[in-house]
């Protein structure tokens, strides 16, 4: 006899997967596009401002853009607005540097009650840590390849 559906992990798993409502892909993508695009546009406008108005050189103004957006995201996270924007914007706030800033700031605020060293100090990296680790590792890997190639070319 066939096993009842609720006891049949394989069949049940397939059933659950099949029926689960998908996120609204189209509206999510639209929101992500608009919000993400706007953040990049804001960055571009700031880049122009730092470069042309304040007369910074290219690298300094690019760094200035990153720092400004990071500051803005940290501030919005602090006043409790970022998570509400993020819920609508999805990847639109996640992928720009604002997402990295939020990933650092949110655990910092959250773990204050566990103390400044083992709370904020240690847990500030819980969400952003992987980005730093694997970014560095891929940099080291690329550097190794680049160095070896530079010996021969």
């Amino acid at each position: 006899m066939e096993q009842k559906l609720y006891l049949d992990k394989k069949r049940y798993g397939a059933y659950v997967k099949g029926r689960a409502a998908r996120s609204h892909v189209f509206s999510n993508c639209t929101n992500a596009f608009l919000v993400g695009g706007s953040i990049c546009t804001l960055g571009q406008a700031l880049l122009g401002f730092y470069g042309q108005v304040l007369g910074m050189d290219e690298r300094a103004s690019a760094t200035g853009v990153s720092v400004s957006l990071i500051f803005l995201a940290a501030l919005l996270t602090g006043i409790g607005v970022f998570d509400r924007i993020g819920r609508v914007a999805g990847a639109g706030t996640l992928v720009p540097i604002t997402g990295f800033s939020n990933a650092v700031t949110s655990p910092a605020i959250d773990t204050r009650s566990e103390g400044w060293v083992m709370g904020v100090g240690a847990k500030i990296f819980t969400v952003a840590g992987p980005v730093i680790l694997y970014g560095t590792l891929s940099g080291v890997l690329y550097g190794t390849v680049y160095y070896i190639l530079s010996l021969f070319l």
Partner: peptide, 30 residues
């Protein structure tokens, strides 16, 4: 340079995120 390079150019971003994150923890309550 293999080891000193990866975080050099991105240092400002990481330092800014950590600094502002910490300051947010000082000034804001969850």
């Amino acid at each position: 340079g293999i080891l000193s390079g990866p975080l050099t150019a991105s240092a400002a971003g990481i330092a800014a995120a950590l600094t502002f994150g910490f300051l947010a923890a000082v000034f804001f309550k969850g």
